[in-house]
Computed example of a mutant assay.
Amino acid sequence: MQQKLKIAIQKSGRLYEDSVKLLKDCGIDVKNGINKLKTEAENFPLEIYFLRDDDIPQYVEDGVADIGIVGENVMYEKNKKAFIVEELGFGKCRLSIAVGRKDDYTGVGFLQGKRIATSYPILVEKFLAEKGISAEIHEISGSVEIAPGIGLADAIVDLVSSGSTLFMNGLKEVETVLKSQAVLIRNEKLRADQLQLLDRLLFRIRAVKKAKNNKYVLLNAPNNKLQEIIALLPGMKSPTVLPLAEPGWSSVHSVLSEDRFWDIIEQLKDAGAQGILVIPIEKMII
């Protein structure tokens, strides 16, 4: 019987869709029926468990699941015996302190002796201890942002993406406790065959991530400007240069990282590049 790797992902919520999409982008056929808690991939030795986000670190620690996709905030809050093997780049948010919009917040000293409502008491307690602040922590689940408005707390610590929910509840974000994203975690005691399967999965995940962070660029360059343009396009090793049918021109193919893309495109135009095409990359294997 073929050994399978068992992965736990969120059954619903903000990480579910991106987790399933990542597996599918890795070429893994994932089928999840309504209310189904377990499924198997047909084309990769993988069992997928659909669980509550908060339970995933415990399942991985216990070895019920070998690996899991979970938010860093949950991983650190639950403090289980599992460790991060890969940052996945989606589900980005921050665990932040928020106070009333009219409060005169001048620094973390403001929190001294205050009441703080949160669903993340361990992370908040650690943050306050590092800052030398003594405060009263109220652990609540869900709708943390209403706590100041109903007199339960003076401040909150909660996950923030856009900040619109805070604004609607008369709050303002003042400190970041933790920057978070989805991560792949694993059990500490995987066998050699399980580690081999994990390496195969990581190879695919990293190829997908690399592709998302890069663009394939094709352009036409006058030969008298070719060296100047090539200098702007390092590519994976070096750009590919092919002669065009029109004398004095070449076609240049390369890869650009997303974070430098627009700056370099502007420089290419200034250097004389024409007919610039930008194409998404589906997979990128280095």
Rank of each mutant, 00 (worst) to 15 (best):
P243K: 08
F44Y: 15
I230Q: 15
V174E: 08
I137N: 05
S238V: 03
D66C: 05
M236R: 12
L178S: 08
R52F: 10
A155D: 06
G63R: 07
G109P: 00
G151A: 11
F127I: 09
A192Q: 15
G100N: 14
N213D: 15
G71C: 08
F110A: 12
Q2M: 12
E42Q: 15
M236H: 03
R206W: 08
K269E: 10
G142K: 13
M284V: 02
S180K: 01
D55I: 03
I185E: 09
K237H: 11
L218A: 00
P247N: 12
K209C: 01
M236S: 12
R260C: 06
D193H: 04
N35E: 15
I281W: 09
K4D: 01
K269R: 15
R206S: 06
T176G: 09
E266N: 10
I185K: 01
K92S: 10
K24W: 01
L22N: 02
E17K: 09
H253L: 12
L232S: 06
V74C: 00
S12E: 11
E130V: 01
K36M: 12
V74E: 00
S161P: 04
E42W: 04
D29R: 08
N43M: 14
E86Q: 15
G113C: 07
S254V: 10
G163W: 05
V144Q: 05
A117P: 03
S257Q: 14
C26D: 14
E136C: 01
D103E: 15
D270V: 05
P280Q: 11
Q10E: 15
K225N: 01
T240Q: 10
N224H: 06
N223K: 04
V208F: 01
L88A: 05
A82P: 07
S251I: 04
V30G: 03
L195R: 03
S250R: 04
E77D: 04
Q196A: 08
S143N: 15
Q181R: 13
L184R: 02
I7E: 03
N223Q: 07
E139K: 09
I230H: 04
Q2D: 13
E72F: 06
P121Y: 12
K126R: 11
G13A: 11
E246C: 01
Y216I: 02
G272N: 01
R101N: 13
I229G: 07
V241A: 04
A231N: 14
Q58N: 06
R200L: 11
V278S: 13
L166W: 02
T118S: 11
G163D: 06
D154A: 14
E246K: 00
L23T: 06
G149T: 09
K92V: 08
S257W: 09
